[in-house]
Computed example of a mutant assay.
Amino acid sequence: MSGDWLYALCSAFTGGPVAFHMPSNKRIPLPFAPESDRVQLGDGYLVRQGGAGLEVYNLRSGAPVRERDIAQEETKYGSNWTLDRFGGRLAYTDVGETVRLAGVTGKTSPLAAIDQDTAATVDFKQAKTWQARWWLSKPVSSWKLMVRNTTSGVTTVVRTGTDARGLIAPSWDGKSPTGSYLFTGEYEWTLTARPADGHGAELRTSGTVTVTGVPPVARPPLRP
């Protein structure tokens, strides 16, 4: 699996290997025999190691377009190529043992949160911090975590970051950027992130967390 794409060795419709694009429910039959150890799937493309080198198939049009062939010498020390399933490019070594990068035409899949681990409650007297994790489908150039008190409607940016690859895992201590504790109560958290490759919209995902255990100097906010 890579982003919105799956590679299957056998399809009930074609009897051979297929690439499957999940958002469009599109099955793309592939023009070679079922293989696992010599095929890798990227975001919208597939690379197969053939007898003379690498075959690069662009899948983004809905058909397996053989976009390039890369000559390589056979090595006895294992694979001399790999690709980045998080929206990146193919990397390989040429005959002079120089590392090269190669991509395919077209846009990558939109940035998405593959999975997340966010606690629904946090007691800052016991836990000290609220730990959260988001696993992303491709690298981001910047991200921001905000919390909004559902009683007062006040939104506070509690964490920001720049480059992140695969994982965003901030730790929040219940304080604002100025160092003061926020109030106890119900909060809506929102994570926004911008894709590093510039393809697709900004990611925006939200949830809720109940905050307790803040120092007694903090008082519940008044309704506006």
Rank of each mutant, 00 (worst) to 15 (best):
G50M: 02
P29C: 01
S152L: 00
W135D: 10
P110T: 00
S142T: 09
D115Y: 11
R27Y: 06
V140N: 00
R89A: 11
E55C: 12
Q131N: 10
A112Q: 07
Y45M: 14
W130Q: 06
G153R: 01
K144H: 13
K107V: 08
E35M: 04
R68T: 14
Y77V: 09
A119F: 10
N149I: 07
S61C: 04
G44T: 03
S141W: 09
G103R: 04
T98M: 02
T93I: 07
I28A: 02
V140R: 00
Y77S: 12
L46W: 06
P64T: 05
K125H: 13
I70E: 01
S109V: 01
R60G: 07
E73L: 05
T82Q: 06
E55H: 15
P110K: 00
A102N: 13
A71D: 10
Q131V: 10
A71Q: 15
Y45L: 12
P139Q: 03
E74L: 05
L90V: 01
V154K: 14
N25T: 15
A33E: 08
V104A: 04
V122W: 09
Y92R: 11
G62D: 05
Q116T: 01
A119E: 08
S79H: 04
V39Y: 08
L30K: 01
K138Y: 01
W81N: 08
S109W: 00
P29M: 02
R66L: 13
D43V: 08
T93M: 09
Q116F: 06
K107W: 09
R85A: 14
Q72M: 15
P110A: 01
G87C: 06
S141N: 05
P31R: 06
K26C: 08
E97A: 09
S24H: 05
T155C: 03
D84H: 14
P110R: 00
T151P: 00
G78L: 00
A132P: 01
A52I: 09
P34C: 03
D123H: 05
S137R: 00
Y57E: 03
K26P: 05
R148C: 08
D69Q: 11
G78S: 03
W143N: 02
A132R: 09
T108H: 12
V122D: 04
T93L: 14
T82A: 10
D43L: 05
Q126P: 01
L111E: 00
E55S: 11
T98A: 03
T98F: 01
P34W: 07
G103W: 04
E67P: 06
E35P: 01
V95K: 14
V99K: 08
R100M: 09
A112C: 04
S109N: 03
D94P: 14
V154S: 06
L136V: 13
V99T: 10
D37N: 09
T82Y: 09
S79R: 15
R60T: 12
L90W: 03
S137C: 02
T155S: 12
T118P: 07
V56Q: 06
Q116A: 14
W135H: 15
A102W: 02
F86A: 13
A127E: 10
P139E: 04
R148E: 07
R85Y: 05
V122C: 13
N58G: 14
T151I: 00
G106A: 13
R133D: 10
S61R: 15
T98K: 07
F124N: 12
K76T: 11
E97F: 13
Q131G: 03
R148P: 03
K144G: 03
K26L: 11
D115M: 15
G96N: 12
Q116E: 02
E73I: 02
G106S: 10
A91P: 08
